[in-house]
């Protein structure tokens, strides 16, 4: 490699304000060495941003989803309509556009939110809409007889929902919710586009310096795959635990 080109790349590294870890990475490193050196920054991006972003958004999204699902099951159209509009709007627009509205759009209304909280807001709203449909369907799937049995021992609707219906609906909703969760892990890579230095943005930064796109992006893909694989093991464990009261 020509010295001038190498100098340019070093300049690029500085321009991107990459932190110390990335200085271990230079353009002339070969495949395995580059792979090893990129691993740490990417994993750090994953631990610092990808995983917290996923977990926080998922929990907030689930709370929102439960609320939305209950609103959608209400008899009153005043309660139902906002929930229907919310779900329709979120499901009818691209997640990337939602992210950009929160991060790039809101500042024009004098609301400026940092990249990470912006991502949390957008992802929570997104999960909330999708998961609400799953939760609603699982609540509906529980037989009417369960509600009636709860009523006949004196329960109010709220108590019946909390004590009898939701525990059973949870069991039904675990597989589809796990899907949503795993999709969310991967969708967090979109946060790279609003400057959150999560796993994939790290990959982009490294690739921009080394031009080794194939290697770096495959490496990122493997890391996402490992995270999702571990999550699917957790999902199976949860399902197994909840199976204890269902006939096989």
């Amino acid at each position: 490699m020509e010295p001038s080109l190498k100098l340019l790349k070093i300049g690029l590294v500085k321009m991107f304000h990459l932190n110390d870890m990335l200085f271990a990475i230079t353009a002339d490193q070969g495949g395995w060495e580059l792979f090893k050196n990129s691993l740490l920054p990417m994993i750090k991006g994953g631990i610092k941003y990808t995983i917290p972003l996923t977990l926080i958004s998922f929990v907030a999204g689930l709370i929102l989803a439960l609320l939305t699902a209950i609103m959608r099951l209400s008899k009153s159209s005043i309660v139902r309509t906002p929930a229907i509009v919310y779900v329709s709007a979120i499901r009818g627009t691209p997640l990337l556009v939602q992210l950009f509205i929160v991060f790039y759009g809101l500042p024009s209304l004098n609301i400026t939110i940092d990249p990470f909280p912006s991502a949390i807001i957008a992802f929570s709203l997104n999960v909330g809409a999708y998961a609400s449909e799953i939760i609603r369907a699982s609540i509906i799937s529980i037989s009417k007889g369960q509600w009636e049995a709860a009523y006949t021992i004196g329960m109010t609707q709220n108590t019946a929902l909390r004590r009898i219906i939701l525990p059973q609906a949870t069991r039904v909703s675990i597989p589809p919710l796990s899907n949503t969760f795993i999709s969310l892990v991967k969708d967090t890579s979109l946060a790279s586009l609003i400057l959150v230095t999560e796993l994939f943005r790290r990959a982009q930064e490294i690739a921009a310096v080394t031009y080794d796109f194939m290697l770096i992006y495959i490496e990122a893909a493997i890391l996402y795959w490992i995270i999702c694989f571990l999550l699917s093991i957790v999902q199976q464990a949860i399902e197994k635990r909840l199976e204890r009261y269902t006939a096989t």
């Binding site: 007889g145 369960q146 006949t152 525990p167």
Partner: peptide
């Protein structure tokens, strides 16, 4: 709350 009900299909709480 004055009465207890026994259903044709039992409707026990499976969990």
């Amino acid at each position: 709350r004055k009465s207890g009900m026994v259903f044709q299909s039992y409707n026990l709480f499976p969990h």
